[in-house]
Design a protein around this nucleic acid. Structure first.
Length: 257
DNA sequence: AAGTGTATCAACCGCATGACT
DNA sequence: AAGTCATGCGGTTGATACACT
């Protein structure tokens, strides 16, 4: 079936967003939400396509975006999750409060992938200092009140791969008013606490997300070919728990549970 | 100080998918 | 059932900042 372009290109602006555009977008989302990205730019008076507005909001203007460098714990989490999930950046992002799929994808390609590649010890040290962009940045233009730190992973957000992420601004505001429990992993304990919800959410996801092939494939061997996944995740949650424990063991991963 | 190479990251593009008609 | 629309996702690109010579 044919698909129309996401937006009519004529007359629409592209490229980097200006502070004024950011301000307009934030103000509009704050006031009206973003139930319809396609109509939003017209309503807000922006010469952008809805897709561009959505991306800008998701990746930069959202109030729960965490800016600045990734912590070592976050990087390790990305590596672990990538081993289990592959390039499912949005799913990985759902596990890292305040981080976007785009950001994680960039970090993976620019840092983490290289880190995993074996190198002579002499090349381990980074050649460059962190760039300005890597340093904590000034907060993006936002009309939203309250802390801009990350919020704990909410069910809506965790399941963003399978459900609409149309979260109202009110939701974000409410979420932002919570303590910044997920803002930073102040200790390993805190970090792993965040992952306490991993299994329940992961198990829930398996009803719609095709069952983490990599983990399944690796675990299949140890479970034997006859150990087919349950037809319904609800009827055998233990299967998936064992599956991931097995997969973690096989990959010599630190236990995340 | 200037030129060049490279790393980084914001933004774009095209496709997949689900909802709706 | 088929077509259209809207959104989400992952891959890719281009501008820019920075390191190195």
């Amino acid at each position: 079936m044919g698909r129309s372009p996401c937006c009519e290109k004529m007359g629409l602006k592209r490229g980097p967003w200006t502070a004024e555009e950011d301000r307009i977008l934030v103000a509009h989302v704050e006031r009206h939400g973003h139930s319809n990205w396609r109509a939003l730019p017209k309503q807000a008076g922006l010469l952008r396509c809805g897709k561009s507005c959505r991306l800008r909001w998701i990746n930069y203007l959202r109030p729960d975006i965490k800016r600045g460098n990734f912590s070592r714990e976050e990087e390790d989490a990305i590596i672990q999750l990538h081993q289990m999930l592959g390039n499912r950046w949005s799913t990985i992002a759902a596990r890292l409060p305040g981080r976007t799929d785009n950001e994680i994808k960039n970090v993976w390609h620019t840092h983490l992938k290289k880190r995993l590649e074996p190198k002579p010890a002499s090349q381990q040290a980074p050649k460059r200092k962190p760039t300005k962009k890597q340093q904590p940045q000034p907060e993006p233009v936002t009309a939203l009140e309250g802390p801009t730190g990350a919020v704990p992973v909410s069910p809506e957000r965790s399941l963003s791969t399978t459900t609409s992420t149309t979260t109202s601004t009110a939701d974000y505001s409410a979420a932002s008013s919570l303590e910044n429990a997920g803002d930073s992993f102040t200790s390993e304990e805190d970090y792993y606490q965040i992952d306490d919800s991993f299994w329940s959410e992961t198990l829930a996801m398996t009803t719609t997300v095709d069952s983490f092939e990599s983990g399944v494939q690796q675990a299949e061997g140890s479970f034997g070919k006859s150990a087919a996944p349950p037809s319904s995740t609800n009827d055998d949650m233990d299967f998936w728990l064992k599956l991931f424990m097995q997969a973690s063991d096989m990959q010599n991963l630190p236990q995340i549970i």
